[in-house]
Simulated scan of single mutants.
Amino acid sequence: MRRGPAGWWHLLEWDLRSREVTSGAWLRGTLYPRRCDISPDGKLLGYFALGHGPSPWDTYFAVSKVPWLTALVAWHTFGTWTGGCEFAPDNGLTIWASMGVKPFHGDYPYGAVVESLDRDWIYRDLQNEYKRGWRPLAEGMAGRMPPELREAVLIARVRPGGDRALVLAHTGTDFQRHGIEGVQVSYLREEDDGHLTPLPEAAWADWDDEGRLLMATRDGVIKIIEWRSGAWTQTWSQDLRDLTPEPLPSPPWVQDW
């Protein structure tokens, strides 16, 4: 999910095997990436949106096909008081939100459950990381954090196939500053000697299943960084900064199940 210019969001599909980025939907409204989820097979997107249409399309939760926002099923939410969603391995869906139990548009063939909004906001901010295997930082590593980050909420994920960790420090929420849904995060990468290297350019970062470091930078570039010949080496990047809104009708294959 890419934001910009002001008031616009753009969805793109990033294929890590072919290293191709495919353009999808443009939305003039607001999306909430930290409260969205992608199905295990990578085909379905569950998302919250604040649009400019008449009720019930003003605030809603919907399921679409990646990388489009054409709602195959949608529920009206009572404002933006929403907590997140999660797909099960069989594509069953759980939604935590203050919203109607029954969809106002379409229906969901895999089964959906609406739960009460009882998650704390820190968990909501980090729920997608927890789903991908991030866990609270071990006490020993916490002592190696820079002093200014030791009071932050700290989580880490060990690199698949290795023993280095990527660390995320959640330092609060400030909607006046750059951050996904205003959440202020800093990333650090653990090195062989145990030193933690700050990654100040990262707006988002994570390992992929092959142990490569994926990153979206604060200035709008996505990158793949790999461990090669004893050093971290950028092996691919794509600059998304200069994209301009070009909303197009969704293709037929995303318009039904």
Rank of each mutant, 00 (worst) to 15 (best):
E86W: 00
L168I: 06
E86G: 11
Q255V: 01
V221R: 11
D239N: 15
L137C: 14
S116Y: 05
A49S: 13
V221K: 09
Q234H: 04
V63G: 12
S39M: 12
L12S: 13
D15F: 08
D120V: 09
W236Q: 03
F48I: 04
D107S: 15
M215S: 05
E20M: 08
R124I: 15
Y47M: 06
R17F: 09
P67M: 08
D125N: 15
M141Q: 01
R34Q: 10
Q127M: 15
A165D: 02
L93S: 09
W207A: 00
V153Y: 01
F87A: 14
W207S: 01
T77R: 07
W121L: 13
F48A: 03
Q255D: 09
H170S: 08
T70M: 03
R241A: 14
E210L: 12
T77Q: 08
L45N: 06
I122E: 15
S237T: 10
T59C: 13
T233W: 00
A205D: 01
T77E: 07
Y123I: 04
A97Y: 06
G83P: 11
D90W: 06
P251T: 13
W81Q: 07
L199Y: 00
S64I: 08
G7Q: 05
G7P: 08
S55V: 12
G106E: 06
S116R: 04
W253H: 13
E129A: 13
D209Y: 07
R34S: 09
E115T: 07
A74D: 04
S186G: 07
R17G: 15
Y60G: 03
V185A: 11
W26G: 07
S64G: 15
T80I: 13
L188I: 02
H76W: 03
M99Y: 04
I180G: 01
M215L: 15
A231T: 10
M1G: 15
P109A: 09
L196D: 11
A231I: 00
R241K: 14
S39T: 11
K102M: 14
A71E: 14
M145C: 04
V183Q: 04
C85H: 00
W14I: 08
R150E: 02
K102H: 10
T59W: 02
L12M: 14
T233C: 07
A88V: 05
L214S: 04
W96Q: 02
Y187R: 01
P147L: 13
L50P: 00
W257T: 10
L243I: 06
W236F: 00
Q184F: 04
V73C: 10
Y187W: 10
R144I: 00
